[in-house]
Protein backbone atom coordinates (compact mmCIF):
# COMPACT_ATOMS: atom_id res chain seq x y z
CA UNK A 1 0.00 0.00 0.00
CA UNK A 2 2.80 2.37 0.91
CA UNK A 3 4.27 1.77 -2.55
CA UNK A 4 1.10 2.94 -4.20
CA UNK A 5 1.04 6.14 -2.14
CA UNK A 6 4.64 6.74 -3.19
CA UNK A 7 3.93 6.09 -6.87
CA UNK A 8 0.97 8.43 -6.68
CA UNK A 9 3.14 11.16 -5.12
CA UNK A 10 5.76 10.69 -7.83
CA UNK A 11 3.07 10.97 -10.51
CA UNK A 12 1.73 14.13 -8.90
CA UNK A 13 5.20 15.62 -8.64
CA UNK A 14 6.10 14.81 -12.24
CA UNK A 15 2.86 16.37 -13.30
CA UNK A 16 3.88 19.47 -11.38
CA UNK A 17 7.48 19.50 -12.58
CA UNK A 18 7.22 18.69 -16.27
CA UNK A 19 5.48 21.85 -17.46
CA UNK A 20 7.86 23.92 -15.31
CA UNK A 21 10.86 22.19 -16.88
CA UNK A 22 9.59 22.73 -20.39
CA UNK A 23 11.47 25.29 -22.49
CA UNK A 24 10.04 28.82 -22.82
CA UNK A 25 8.17 30.96 -20.30
CA UNK A 26 4.78 30.08 -18.81
CA UNK A 27 3.33 32.92 -20.83
CA UNK A 28 3.96 30.94 -24.02
CA UNK A 29 1.68 28.25 -22.69
CA UNK A 30 -0.89 30.26 -20.82
CA UNK A 31 -1.72 32.90 -23.40
CA UNK A 32 -3.15 32.09 -26.81
CA UNK A 33 -0.16 32.10 -29.14
CA UNK A 34 -1.26 34.96 -31.38
CA UNK A 35 -1.32 37.31 -28.35
CA UNK A 36 2.11 36.40 -26.91
CA UNK A 37 3.97 39.02 -28.95
CA UNK A 38 1.62 41.90 -28.08
CA UNK A 39 1.16 41.30 -24.37
CA UNK A 40 2.03 44.18 -21.98
CA UNK A 41 4.13 43.74 -18.83
CA UNK A 42 1.09 44.45 -16.59
CA UNK A 43 -0.98 41.82 -18.37
CA UNK A 44 1.93 39.47 -17.99
CA UNK A 45 2.02 40.04 -14.22
CA UNK A 46 -1.68 39.51 -13.98
CA UNK A 47 -1.58 36.20 -15.86
CA UNK A 48 1.28 34.92 -13.71
CA UNK A 49 -0.51 36.01 -10.53
CA UNK A 50 -3.70 34.38 -11.70
CA UNK A 51 -1.91 31.04 -11.88
CA UNK A 52 0.21 31.71 -8.80
CA UNK A 53 3.38 31.44 -10.85
CA UNK A 54 5.13 34.43 -9.25
CA UNK A 55 5.39 32.60 -5.89
CA UNK A 56 8.45 30.51 -4.85
CA UNK A 57 8.52 27.00 -6.32
CA UNK A 58 8.01 25.20 -3.01
CA UNK A 59 4.97 27.27 -2.20
CA UNK A 60 3.62 26.61 -5.70
CA UNK A 61 4.09 22.90 -5.11
CA UNK A 62 2.28 23.08 -1.82
CA UNK A 63 -0.60 25.03 -3.33
CA UNK A 64 -0.73 22.55 -6.19
CA UNK A 65 -1.06 19.60 -3.84
CA UNK A 66 -3.61 21.42 -1.69
CA UNK A 67 -5.57 22.26 -4.84
CA UNK A 68 -5.67 18.63 -5.91
CA UNK A 69 -6.89 17.53 -2.50
CA UNK A 70 -9.74 20.02 -2.84
CA UNK A 71 -10.47 18.90 -6.38
CA UNK A 72 -9.03 22.05 -7.95
CA UNK A 73 -6.97 21.47 -11.09
CA UNK A 74 -7.07 25.06 -12.37
CA UNK A 75 -8.85 26.49 -15.37
CA UNK A 76 -8.79 25.76 -19.08
CA UNK A 77 -6.89 28.49 -20.94
CA UNK A 78 -9.18 28.00 -23.92
CA UNK A 79 -12.62 27.73 -22.34
CA UNK A 80 -12.03 29.34 -18.97
CA UNK A 81 -13.95 26.51 -17.30
CA UNK A 82 -12.64 24.55 -14.31
CA UNK A 83 -10.54 21.65 -15.55
CA UNK A 84 -12.19 19.30 -13.07
CA UNK A 85 -15.61 19.95 -14.58
CA UNK A 86 -14.32 19.28 -18.07
CA UNK A 87 -12.69 16.03 -16.97
CA UNK A 88 -15.72 14.79 -15.05
CA UNK A 89 -17.87 15.45 -18.08
CA UNK A 90 -15.73 13.16 -20.20
CA UNK A 91 -14.78 10.58 -17.61
CA UNK A 92 -17.96 8.41 -17.72
CA UNK A 93 -17.61 8.01 -21.48
CA UNK A 94 -14.06 6.77 -21.18
CA UNK A 95 -14.84 4.58 -18.19
CA UNK A 96 -17.62 2.84 -20.09
CA UNK A 97 -15.39 2.43 -23.13
CA UNK A 98 -12.27 1.21 -21.31
CA UNK A 99 -14.15 -0.90 -18.77
CA UNK A 100 -16.32 -2.42 -21.45
CA UNK A 101 -13.34 -3.14 -23.68
CA UNK A 102 -11.39 -4.81 -20.88
CA UNK A 103 -14.35 -6.96 -19.89
CA UNK A 104 -15.28 -7.90 -23.46
CA UNK A 105 -11.72 -8.57 -24.56
CA UNK A 106 -11.25 -10.79 -21.52
CA UNK A 107 -14.32 -12.82 -22.37
CA UNK A 108 -13.49 -13.05 -26.08
CA UNK A 109 -9.68 -13.07 -26.06
CA UNK A 110 -9.01 -15.10 -22.95
CA UNK A 111 -11.95 -17.40 -23.65
CA UNK A 112 -10.66 -18.19 -27.12
CA UNK A 113 -7.11 -18.47 -25.78
CA UNK A 114 -8.13 -21.04 -23.19
CA UNK A 115 -10.11 -23.00 -25.78
CA UNK A 116 -7.16 -22.95 -28.10
CA UNK A 117 -4.78 -24.24 -25.44
CA UNK A 118 -7.25 -26.92 -24.34
CA UNK A 119 -7.41 -28.41 -27.84
CA UNK A 120 -3.95 -27.69 -29.12
CA UNK A 121 -3.01 -28.88 -32.57
CA UNK A 122 -6.55 -28.93 -33.95
CA UNK A 123 -7.55 -27.19 -37.14
CA UNK A 124 -9.53 -24.43 -35.47
CA UNK A 125 -6.65 -23.68 -33.23
CA UNK A 126 -4.24 -22.66 -36.00
CA UNK A 127 -6.92 -20.41 -37.52
CA UNK A 128 -7.57 -18.80 -34.14
CA UNK A 129 -3.89 -18.28 -33.47
CA UNK A 130 -3.31 -16.56 -36.80
CA UNK A 131 -6.39 -14.39 -36.39
CA UNK A 132 -5.54 -13.19 -32.89
CA UNK A 133 -1.85 -12.71 -33.65
CA UNK A 134 -2.95 -10.57 -36.57
CA UNK A 135 -5.19 -8.52 -34.25
CA UNK A 136 -2.40 -8.15 -31.73
CA UNK A 137 0.00 -6.80 -34.33
CA UNK A 138 -2.38 -4.24 -35.85
CA UNK A 139 -2.27 -0.63 -34.68
CA UNK A 140 -5.56 0.43 -33.01
CA UNK A 141 -6.26 3.27 -35.41
CA UNK A 142 -6.01 0.93 -38.35
CA UNK A 143 -8.58 -1.47 -36.97
CA UNK A 144 -10.73 1.53 -36.07
CA UNK A 145 -10.57 2.92 -39.59
CA UNK A 146 -11.39 -0.47 -41.01
CA UNK A 147 -14.50 -0.81 -38.85
CA UNK A 148 -15.45 2.78 -39.55
CA UNK A 149 -15.34 2.24 -43.29
CA UNK A 150 -17.17 -1.05 -43.00
CA UNK A 151 -20.03 -0.09 -40.69
CA UNK A 152 -20.54 3.59 -41.30
CA UNK A 153 -19.32 4.04 -44.84
CA UNK A 154 -20.19 0.78 -46.52
CA UNK A 155 -23.05 -0.69 -44.50
CA UNK A 156 -24.29 2.72 -43.26
CA UNK A 157 -25.81 1.27 -40.11
CA UNK A 158 -24.00 3.32 -37.49
CA UNK A 159 -23.24 7.03 -37.17
CA UNK A 160 -19.79 8.11 -38.28
CA UNK A 161 -19.28 10.59 -35.51
CA UNK A 162 -19.87 9.71 -31.92
CA UNK A 163 -19.81 13.37 -31.01
CA UNK A 164 -23.35 13.93 -32.19
CA UNK A 165 -25.14 15.62 -29.31
CA UNK A 166 -27.45 13.36 -27.36
CA UNK A 167 -31.06 14.32 -28.13
CA UNK A 168 -32.53 12.60 -25.09
CA UNK A 169 -35.65 11.79 -27.12
CA UNK A 170 -37.54 8.72 -26.05
CA UNK A 171 -36.64 8.99 -22.38
CA UNK A 172 -34.25 6.64 -20.58
CA UNK A 173 -34.44 3.91 -23.14
CA UNK A 174 -33.86 6.28 -26.05
CA UNK A 175 -30.89 7.80 -24.32
CA UNK A 176 -29.38 4.38 -23.64
CA UNK A 177 -29.81 3.54 -27.29
CA UNK A 178 -28.07 6.74 -28.39
CA UNK A 179 -25.17 6.13 -26.06
CA UNK A 180 -24.90 2.51 -27.21
CA UNK A 181 -24.86 3.65 -30.80
CA UNK A 182 -21.95 5.99 -30.17
CA UNK A 183 -20.20 3.42 -28.05
CA UNK A 184 -20.44 0.42 -30.34
CA UNK A 185 -17.67 1.00 -32.87
CA UNK A 186 -15.06 2.41 -30.48
CA UNK A 187 -15.83 -0.41 -28.07
CA UNK A 188 -15.54 -3.01 -30.80
CA UNK A 189 -12.25 -1.56 -31.99
CA UNK A 190 -10.66 -1.37 -28.58
CA UNK A 191 -11.95 -4.84 -27.70
CA UNK A 192 -10.45 -6.37 -30.83
CA UNK A 193 -7.16 -4.60 -30.20
CA UNK A 194 -6.95 -5.95 -26.65
CA UNK A 195 -8.33 -9.39 -27.42
CA UNK A 196 -5.29 -10.35 -29.50
CA UNK A 197 -2.89 -9.83 -26.63
CA UNK A 198 -5.11 -11.52 -24.06
CA UNK A 199 -5.57 -14.48 -26.37
CA UNK A 200 -1.83 -14.99 -26.54
CA UNK A 201 -1.37 -14.61 -22.78
CA UNK A 202 -4.28 -16.92 -21.94
CA UNK A 203 -3.22 -19.52 -24.46
CA UNK A 204 0.39 -19.73 -23.40
CA UNK A 205 -0.33 -19.69 -19.68
CA UNK A 206 -2.95 -22.44 -19.89
CA UNK A 207 -0.72 -24.49 -22.19
CA UNK A 208 1.99 -24.20 -19.53
CA UNK A 209 -0.37 -25.24 -16.75
CA UNK A 210 -1.65 -28.23 -18.72
CA UNK A 211 1.84 -29.74 -18.73
CA UNK A 212 2.10 -29.54 -14.92
CA UNK A 213 2.12 -32.62 -12.71
CA UNK A 214 -1.18 -31.80 -11.02
CA UNK A 215 -2.92 -32.13 -14.39
CA UNK A 216 -1.73 -35.73 -14.70
CA UNK A 217 -3.12 -36.38 -11.22
CA UNK A 218 -6.43 -34.74 -12.14
CA UNK A 219 -6.68 -37.04 -15.16
CA UNK A 220 -5.55 -40.06 -13.17
CA UNK A 221 -8.29 -39.67 -10.60
CA UNK A 222 -10.84 -39.92 -13.36
CA UNK A 223 -11.98 -36.36 -14.00
CA UNK A 224 -13.56 -35.52 -17.33
CA UNK A 225 -11.49 -33.54 -19.80
CA UNK A 226 -13.52 -30.42 -19.02
CA UNK A 227 -12.80 -30.59 -15.32
CA UNK A 228 -9.14 -31.37 -15.94
CA UNK A 229 -8.86 -28.24 -18.07
CA UNK A 230 -10.76 -26.38 -15.34
CA UNK A 231 -7.93 -27.17 -12.93
CA UNK A 232 -5.48 -25.60 -15.37
CA UNK A 233 -7.65 -22.55 -16.00
CA UNK A 234 -7.89 -21.84 -12.30
CA UNK A 235 -4.10 -21.57 -12.23
CA UNK A 236 -3.79 -19.75 -15.54
CA UNK A 237 -5.87 -16.83 -14.24
CA UNK A 238 -3.02 -15.26 -12.31
CA UNK A 239 -0.85 -14.28 -15.31
CA UNK A 240 -4.01 -13.01 -16.95
CA UNK A 241 -4.82 -10.64 -14.10
CA UNK A 242 -1.23 -9.42 -14.24
CA UNK A 243 -1.50 -8.91 -17.98
CA UNK A 244 -4.67 -6.86 -17.65
CA UNK A 245 -3.19 -4.69 -14.90
CA UNK A 246 0.18 -4.16 -16.55
CA UNK A 247 -1.52 -3.32 -19.81
CA UNK A 248 -3.99 -0.87 -18.26
CA UNK A 249 -1.83 2.01 -19.47
CA UNK A 250 -1.79 0.64 -22.99
CA UNK A 251 -5.58 0.29 -22.99
CA UNK A 252 -5.86 3.94 -22.01
CA UNK A 253 -3.40 4.87 -24.75
CA UNK A 254 -5.42 2.81 -27.21
CA UNK A 255 -8.59 4.49 -25.99
CA UNK A 256 -7.09 7.92 -26.80
CA UNK A 257 -6.45 6.89 -30.38
CA UNK A 258 -9.78 5.13 -30.80
CA UNK A 259 -11.74 8.03 -29.32
CA UNK A 260 -10.02 10.37 -31.74
CA UNK A 261 -10.73 8.19 -34.74
CA UNK A 262 -14.42 7.97 -33.83
CA UNK A 263 -14.79 11.48 -32.36
CA UNK A 264 -15.98 9.77 -29.21
CA UNK A 265 -16.53 12.31 -26.43
CA UNK A 266 -14.16 10.79 -23.87
CA UNK A 267 -10.97 11.83 -22.14
CA UNK A 268 -8.80 10.71 -25.04
CA UNK A 269 -10.63 12.99 -27.39
CA UNK A 270 -10.29 15.81 -24.83
CA UNK A 271 -6.53 15.23 -24.71
CA UNK A 272 -6.37 15.34 -28.48
CA UNK A 273 -8.35 18.60 -28.59
CA UNK A 274 -6.21 20.12 -25.84
CA UNK A 275 -3.00 19.24 -27.65
CA UNK A 276 -4.28 20.98 -30.76
CA UNK A 277 -5.26 24.09 -28.82
CA UNK A 278 -2.27 23.91 -26.45
CA UNK A 279 -4.56 23.91 -23.43
CA UNK A 280 -1.94 22.91 -20.86
CA UNK A 281 -3.97 22.92 -17.64
CA UNK A 282 -6.50 20.56 -19.22
CA UNK A 283 -3.75 18.31 -20.54
CA UNK A 284 -2.09 18.24 -17.14
CA UNK A 285 -5.34 17.39 -15.42
CA UNK A 286 -6.17 14.66 -17.92
CA UNK A 287 -2.75 13.05 -17.58
CA UNK A 288 -3.03 13.14 -13.84
CA UNK A 289 -6.38 11.40 -14.04
CA UNK A 290 -4.98 8.73 -16.36
CA UNK A 291 -2.03 8.16 -14.05
CA UNK A 292 -4.39 7.70 -11.12
CA UNK A 293 -6.46 5.30 -13.22
CA UNK A 294 -3.47 3.14 -14.10
CA UNK A 295 -2.26 3.11 -10.50
CA UNK A 296 -5.75 2.10 -9.39
CA UNK A 297 -5.78 -0.76 -11.91
CA UNK A 298 -2.53 -2.09 -10.52
CA UNK A 299 -3.78 -1.74 -6.97
CA UNK A 300 -6.89 -3.68 -7.91
CA UNK A 301 -4.76 -6.45 -9.41
CA UNK A 302 -2.68 -6.62 -6.23
CA UNK A 303 -5.84 -6.97 -4.19
CA UNK A 304 -7.09 -9.70 -6.54
CA UNK A 305 -3.96 -11.89 -6.42
CA UNK A 306 -4.53 -13.28 -2.93
CA UNK A 307 -8.13 -14.09 -3.83
CA UNK A 308 -6.96 -16.17 -6.79
CA UNK A 309 -3.75 -17.63 -5.38
CA UNK A 310 -3.48 -18.91 -1.79
CA UNK A 311 0.33 -18.85 -2.02
CA UNK A 312 0.25 -15.09 -2.42
CA UNK A 313 -2.13 -14.91 0.52
CA UNK A 314 0.42 -16.73 2.68
CA UNK A 315 3.22 -14.35 1.69
CA UNK A 316 1.07 -11.34 2.43
CA UNK A 317 0.31 -12.65 5.92
CA UNK A 318 3.96 -13.25 6.69
Amino acid sequence: MAQYALVLLVALSLNFAIPRLAPGTPIDYLVPSEQVATITPEQRERVLAQFGLEKPLLEQYWLYLAGIVQGDLGYSTQQGRPVVDMLLERLPWTLVLVGGAIALSLVIGAGAGFLSAARRGGQTEVGGLVFFMFLDSMPPFWIGMLLLVLFSGYLQILPVFGALPLTGAGGGFGLTFEVAQRLLLPLLTLTLVRAGWLFLVARSSLAGELSEDYIVMAEAKGLSRRRVVGHGVRNALLPLVTAVAVEAGTVVGGATVVETVFSYPGLGRLIYESVLSRDYPVLQGAFLLLAVGVIAANLLADLLYPVIDPRVRAEGAR
Binding site: D213, Y214, M217, H231, R234, N235
Partner: peptide, 9 residues
Protein backbone atom coordinates in the same frame (compact mmCIF):
# COMPACT_ATOMS: atom_id res chain seq x y z
CA UNK B 1 3.67 -36.80 -6.30
CA UNK B 2 4.55 -33.85 -4.07
CA UNK B 3 3.85 -31.65 -7.06
CA UNK B 4 0.76 -33.54 -8.11
CA UNK B 5 -1.61 -31.42 -6.07
CA UNK B 6 -3.30 -28.37 -7.52
CA UNK B 7 -1.67 -25.46 -5.66
CA UNK B 8 -4.82 -23.33 -5.44
CA UNK B 9 -7.30 -25.87 -4.03
Amino acid sequence: AMHALNPVI
